[in-house]
Write a protein that binds this DNA or RNA. Structure first.
Lengths: 337, 337
DNA sequence: CTCCTGGACTTAAAGGTTTTCGGAAACGTA
DNA sequence: TACGTTTCCGAAAACCTTTAAGTCCAGGAG
């Protein structure tokens, strides 16, 4: 806690010039003599002057601030997106106003109003799942970009991970290893993520002219379900040589149960997970090959496109961002593991 | 994207009153007739008027905004604190400006300036570990509260988890179960958290008049280290009947390795973890008894004290917040598991 | 000498809101 | 009628900065 804040008026007085001249000197504009500029800069430093962003924003109509509205920031998915966005902004001079609506539509509305009254230049909406969510952009005076969870309105700008493509990539990886009896265990089908990943797996198998080993098994996203699914699958389809799991949790449970049943991973069964949730994917034995959705990069991209939208040129539509397969021991070719 | 924003001037014109009257009506002040107030409110609704927080803040000097400066928001510890703070603020009408300095002092200084120029009413600094960090509060025109990682300056306001007390609580729990040969495995000793937890364990054992089983084993916070420590410990101190681990990751590794060596948990060895990181603590078998640092509550408390400090009355010093022991199967009394 | 040019600086307005103070109208009382 | 009181409303200042427009002066061209 210290003294009162200095205004440009104080700086001008101390330097013996008018506030207009002080302003010009501080902002590096032309028509001010070098000696005068020196005096002003010295005065500003001495008073540790900080221009008042409120006054500046009031005048220019730009606050260099964006709102980040999340439905569930506690989620593992929101955080990396948030960080990516924050980093993209931080690079420049933007600041991020964070609001967590906790899945409550009316709280969201409330936060929306608060953000608008603070005159944010734009808005990023982070979904809690990849399921489309109601648009918030109608009649808003600022541009909006959706990240992770797309808007229902195709006119909005949305960035989502390419779950279908990533699942196909995962299955193709298994196929390239020579596996031919590939099963799929995933999360609840009311998640678009689960449906998309199944779809991707199906497409890859079809392209290879192979049937899927058994039906897709759908359950909670949990490790427990992974174990349970493994037990069922090893019973009904004892000859599988690979499994693609819809999450790292499921994969970790699967690996554990498979090992307990005497199946070696990856020698007997290769396993691919999803999410690259490091605490699981790198600590299980063997470490998991898994899909990384590059969420931080997705968040960064969303932020950059928000800049573009603020500057006038938006690119409407749902943009699918590529994912990445992180290859670890759970799919090492036999003999190398 | 829609029409231009309405100002109070537009509202006043539409209602046929002066802006002064409009302001009074909108802010629920006294000297305005009921009928007039109605007209103004109707006009404001029709124009969907939002008062410009910049102008208001410029005048009042209060922005109803706080800055949240984190050193490492990707960390598991920063996030819950952040959420707790955000929730405490969100309850009122406060907004949170989020900045991530990523452990870089000069970036931190940069963000600090940006926050001050935006005229935040206060600041929360979230540490990445419980080690004291340099104070940022000298000569700042706004109050600052430190959460998780305390300030080095005892005049500042800091909130930290009571690691010593929690560790003692964990060991006392083991003692109450009748365990007498208790070992301790924890993280790197250059972390204050590791030293505090060891200290708490030592105090509890001393109070019970018991020696610790073996030396404290110190290594990385990882699951791998937990496994390794278990192997060493079961070799050198084969008769231990309990272990207190400095993190859930270590505990998970310990449980795994112990089971592989034929020790039953909790029957032969009871295990207590730390952090209550749910993906580990509830999914290991058996589920882990562990210390929950109540970080979200800590963040909320920090935010509430920041309010107090803004309103004038700060409470300097390092405040130790109580933790909580979450009891699960890894310490169930034999026979119940 | 006048006029013009351009540099260096100042004045004043603008941006949206709150608040203080004063004014006007209506009404009651002497 | 004169005067005081109450109730409602408006004018204007203040918050801080940026910028367009204006002033002043020296010096060069005609």
């Amino acid at each position: 806690m210290a003294t009162k804040r200095a205004t440009i008026n104080d700086v001008a007085s101390l330097a013996g010039v008018s506030i207009a001249t002080a302003s010009k000197a501080l902002n590096g504009r032309q028509d001010v003599r070098a000696a005068t500029r020196e005096r002003v800069l010295a005065a500003a430093a001495q008073l540790s002057f900080q221009p008042n962003a409120l006054a500046r924003g009031l005048l220019s109509g730009q606050t260099r601030t964006v709102g980040l509205l999340t439905s569930d920031s506690v989620g593992r998915f929101g955080i990396p997106v948030l960080l990516g966005a924050e980093n993209a902004f931080g690079a420049g001079e933007m600041a991020v106003l964070l609001c967590d609506a906790r899945g409550d539509a009316i709280r969201e509305q409330h936060h929306l109003r608060a953000l608008l009254s603070r005159r944010v230049d734009g808005l990023i909406v982070v979904g809690e799942s990849t399921d489309p969510r109601p648009s918030v952009s109608k009649d808003l005076p600022v541009p909006v970009v959706y990240a992770y969870g797309p808007s229902e309105d195709p006119e909005d700008v949305s960035f989502v991970p390419d779950d279908v493509g990533a699942a196909a990539m995962a299955v193709n990886h298994l196929l390239a290893l020579g596996r031919r009896r590939i099963a799929h265990v995933t999360g609840p089908t009311h998640y678009k993520a689960a449906r998309d990943r199944e779809e991707g797996a199906r497409l890859a198998l079809e392209a290879a002219g192979l049937p899927q080993a058994g039906q897709t098994l759908s359950g909670p996203w949990s490790q427990r379900w992974g174990r349970h699914a493994a037990e069922m699958l090893l019973m009904s389809e004892p000859e599988i040589d690979a499994v693609f799991c819809g999450s790292d949790q499921i994969a970790a449970g699967f690996v554990e149960a498979a090992r307990e049943r005497g199946r070696r991973v990856p020698d007997d069964i290769a396993v691919v997970g999803y999410d690259n949730w490091e605490v699981l994917s790198t600590e299980t034995r063997p470490a998991l090959t898994t899909v990384d959705m590059n969420l931080e990069s997705l968040g960064r991209t969303a932020a950059q496109h928000l800049f573009a939208a603020i500057d006038g040129k938006a690119t409407p539509g749902v943009h699918k961002m590529p994912c990445q397969l992180v290859i670890r021991d759970s799919t090492s070719p036999p003999g190398i593991s």
